[in-house]
Amino acid sequence: MQVVIDILENELIEKYPDILGILLRDQTTQKNIFWATDNYENLGDSYKSDSEILPDLITGEKGNVIMPRVHKDKILQLSRSKEMAEVFTPSWICNAQNNLVDNSWFGKDGVFNKEILLKNGTKSWETTKEKIVFPKGKTWLDYVQDTRLEITCGEAPYLVSRYDTTTGEFIKVENRIGLLDRKLRIVNENLDSINEWLNAAETAYKSTYGFEWQGDSLLLAREALLITFIENFTHKFETEPPLDYIQNIAEIISWNIWQMDGLKGVIPNSCAAEIIEIPDFFETRTEIKKCKGCETQNIKSHNGIYCHIMDWDIEKPIKFISLLEK
């Protein structure tokens, strides 16, 4: 893959023929993810908000339909910020907040990097060069296995940081600061066998989650996680990973990075009012029954399609909201 921030769907199709189809799959509905935004409706009926994102809609001559937010025009960025609260956080903020997670996990500051202020006033970070040392009672595998979730993830800048989502600046593998980036750094530092590396990387992906409302952002997030896998393997072994492993990681991503209304735990816009016909002596009258969950704001009472994710320990799908009971 080219070292560019916009992952081109045409290149995915050409180099990895089955991968785009996997990345477009919604594992809950067994259909494709859908647009869930009206930003593309001017392109035709197939681009309406409730339409599935199909490969032929974003490849060929339409290969530039979906692009990172930093490449979208300013008017569209502003529109999405207002309508869908789409705000992308600078990488230095993602880093600072991810550092707080690791400060707690390791029991000390500055494990992966040191936050710095550049001469031009820009905040950044300086990556630690030494191999990460783990606290007593914890191992590198514990860290890789620890569950991480980015809510309303957009293009997933807290999980993977291939580029700064506000400036578009590409970030080298060794300087990345995402939650998954950090897991992969640990894998890179501790394993030199390809098979062991692949198994540990799979574990890292299985323990990393994120959900997003809009289909285009979701696809960008999924693509970013997949290319991050390829880039890390290539960085470590100076060759690309086997195709079957790329497909395996894509499958994991299609389960772990999913389309959801985070306030309801369901597929976006899947709750609906029911029209009930009530027989009467002289005529049949209709009554509209609204979604109970939407009316009461009870996440367990929606009539929409509840999202499923994979429980990798038992290798069976579970409802996401079932985790809220634990």
Rank of each mutant, 00 (worst) to 15 (best):
S124M: 06
S124Y: 15
W125N: 04
W125V: 04
W125T: 05
E126P: 01
T127D: 01
T128A: 00
K129E: 14
K129R: 13
K129I: 10
K131R: 13
K131D: 05
K131P: 00
K131V: 12
V133R: 06
F134K: 01
F134W: 01
P135R: 06
P135N: 05
G137W: 01
G137D: 06
G137E: 05
T139F: 04
L141K: 14
L141T: 12
L141E: 13
D142Q: 05
D142S: 07
Y143N: 01
V144D: 01
V144R: 01
D146P: 02
D146Y: 04
T147D: 06
T147Q: 10
T147N: 12
T147I: 14
R148A: 11
L149C: 14
L149P: 02
E150Q: 09
E150D: 15
I151D: 02
G154E: 10
G154Y: 11
E155R: 08
E155F: 04
L159I: 15
L159S: 13
V160I: 15
S161D: 12
Y163N: 11
Y163F: 15
Y163A: 14
Y163V: 11
D164N: 15
D164I: 07
D164P: 06
T166P: 02
T166V: 15
T166H: 03
G168N: 08
G168C: 08
E169G: 00
E169P: 00
E169R: 11
I171H: 03
K172D: 14
N175I: 02
N175T: 03
N175C: 00
N175L: 02
N175V: 02
N175W: 05
R176P: 06
I177H: 05
I177C: 15
G178Y: 07
L180I: 08
L180R: 08
L180T: 06
L180M: 12
D181T: 09
D181K: 10
K183E: 03
K183G: 02
K183R: 09
L184A: 05
I186W: 00
I186A: 13
N188R: 07
E189I: 03
E189V: 03
L191V: 15
D192L: 09
D192R: 06
D192Q: 12
N195G: 07
N195I: 13
N195H: 13
E196K: 13
E196L: 11
E196G: 08
E196S: 13
